[in-house]
Design a protein around this nucleic acid. Structure first.
Lengths: 218, 218, 218, 218
DNA sequence: GATGAATGAGCATTCATTCAT
DNA sequence: CATGAATGAATGCTCATTCAT
């Protein structure tokens, strides 16, 4: 079980830039060749450095990708914090809030596309790194806070299952949408739809009695 | 771009068995070591053959995995066809039909878990093979046929987007559910929830006018 | 702790030859470049094979050297067994027997020079492999048997220490002698001297009483 | 063949301390990781310096180890000179002198253990550096001087061979003893035995005629 | 003088693929 | 048809050495 902890911290200005360049290069390489097809030489070269330099800051390839995951998760977290603050500030709620939050998330997902889609699929273990898990759990805390804040009605008969399903449905949709290559406008539209449908799913329970009648009729 | 077409068709009975054994071995190996960690030697050995034999039927490793994908897709297609026939036969509709269809799909997804989850993530290009695409498009045809058959009211303002989103949401959920390791009952329950929520999403548009008022108010 | 066990047994005639060629090449390479300077590529090439072939039979570099050590130890054991039998057969004893045994050992030491000197110094852990240890302990058994057979008088006041010292002195001398590059006659002469001195050391205790007086006086 | 000569002489006080610290660090590292496992970075760090500093005084890694060897050889030489003086001063001779000399040598061997055992095995070429050879030959001169001084009777039929063999036997024994990890008392005891046996070997020639009779009888 | 960032040749090892038997 | 021996390009990683600051 090889460690993945950063090998040494860059002290000088020059080396800090190098480390960031390596992470950027890793993300770019991920996009075009996937994680398995991505060599440490390729990463270093794209970062304008040599392999040796890469290995001075990271003990192995996984450590590079792991650091990238953490950086992306933290960016997502930071963004969501900001978005939540804006919701509160602007008094957004319900579908409007959902939409704002989803669009904010989408923005990061798009920017960090290779990290979330490629690494999520090819190296899911990197998302179980302590730092990544920490960021994820803070995100979850946030989403609970959102519910309380917006005082919504999500107390359902089978709440965990629903939450689990809806959560996965939404995140899967967002992931798929983030993969669209077209113009941003397209993604924005789809995100709005997801927000709308999500709210429907969540709220549908309220009118359970009447709805079930319609469903049975269908 | 090396070809992936099967090298030669097994004519004799024995050869057919060998090819099937290789595909089975590939699926098993996929489960335990992933596609990247799966070597042609390992596949051949597990199939009780030698590498040479494997290469007599497949031009390269991707061809083996590709053939496996196609086999799994066809199994899924076959199953869904059967399930649809049963819906018609038993006069199922609406949520009941959705549920039956999803449960049928789930059965295959679970059985072919390594193919859909491992290969879907590590080698998505294999799902773009003509034969796999063909099976997939037939599945989509079927789902349209289902709508018609069940005479549902899915003609929405932005129908493709909705269908796209709902389709992805559902398939993502099903994929996740298929990965659950617990007792089947658990998977069955979650699938029912997905079916219910799916129907809600689909039907929600009907009451669009009134709902949009509420949404706007929120 | 990487394993060192042979990876697969050569079944066909061709591969058996390959494995022997690899061991021979390893020994030769050891001679000229030492263990640290010896690369697997160099071994394979010198053996007329490719790296891949080497790794088909040995899991890593240490395994190659380890197998070589075992082969050499077994050759030494085999030779010593034969030499002992000859001593008995020809009724040799005392210095004559010692000389014959040492000369026999020397012959193997010279032939397997790189193994015993280079590996003994640079990779002593290889001599702690089970198979090597087994051969070594059989050698020790033999040397005890020799004492009994020749009925010599080595029951000394501090026998283990003496045996330990004399053993090391002798083996060190033999090792050094085996490294001499000159004509064999030279080595033979020196070996005779070692035999003579060894017997002196061993026998000196006999006249202990008188000697110790002198020693105490010094 | 890269030079090994020290790059520049440390003139200032501070520099001298740095160089000594580097040699000490090298010796310590040798002890724990062997020469092959010892990196220039590790040496520098343990010496509280940076690689750059190390390379300011030594042109390459071998030069560091070489300087260490020379320092140790000189320490050995110095010690032996002192011990010899003491023998003369105290009027020691025969086994008593031998014992004193061996114990003095042992003391240095133990203190410089990593140099003599690790480097002796892994990098014997360092002992062929001019400065190291010079120290060694002075040691040999000394041992001849000892013979003369102690007026012993070592003018044998094949004197070089005997000296060579006995010398190697003794030094090999001392090397082994120096490696013992136990209490010093143990080492002292064994050294005494070596001294005794050595004297026996050396003196045995005297009683050649009578001894050979006994040997033939055995 | 001292520092540590950067370099890149070099090594062990893997594995898809070929082909003689 | 089947076998498994042989191949070698490719990859992750190390570490002695250089040099700008």
């Amino acid at each position: 079980m090889p460690t993945i902890e950063p090998r040494k911290l860059p002290r000088q200005q020059r080396s800090k830039a190098t480390v960031q360049a390596i992470l950027d290069a890793c993300a770019e390489g991920l996009q075009s060749r996937g994680y398995h097809g991505l060599t440490t030489h390729a990463i270093a070269m794209r970062a304008g450095a040599s392999v040796g330099t890469l290995y001075q800051y990271f003990p192995n390839r996984d450590a590079v990708a792991g650091a990238l995951v953490v950086r992306s998760m933290e960016r997502l977290l930071e963004t969501m914090r900001g978005a939540l603050a804006e919701c509160v500030e602007r008094g957004l709620a319900g579908q409007a809030a959902t939409e704002h939050l989803l669009l904010s998330a989408l923005h990061v997902l798009v920017e960090e596309r290779p990290v979330f889609s490629r690494l999520g699929a090819e190296a899911p273990h990197l998302f179980r790194l302590p730092a990544a898990v920490a960021a994820a759990s803070q995100l979850i805390h946030m989403s609970q806070e959102i519910r309380l804040t917006s005082g919504n009605q999500l107390d359902l008969p089978m709440p965990e299952a629903d939450a689990w399903i809806i959560g996965h449905m939404v995140s899967a949709s967002m992931m798929q949408i983030s993969l669209l290559e077209g113009p941003e406008e397209e993604r924005r539209k789809l995100t709005r739809e997801v927000a709308r449908l999500t709210c429907r799913m969540a709220l549908s329970r309220v009118s359970e009695s009447s709805a079930s009648v319609a469903a049975a009729a269908a």
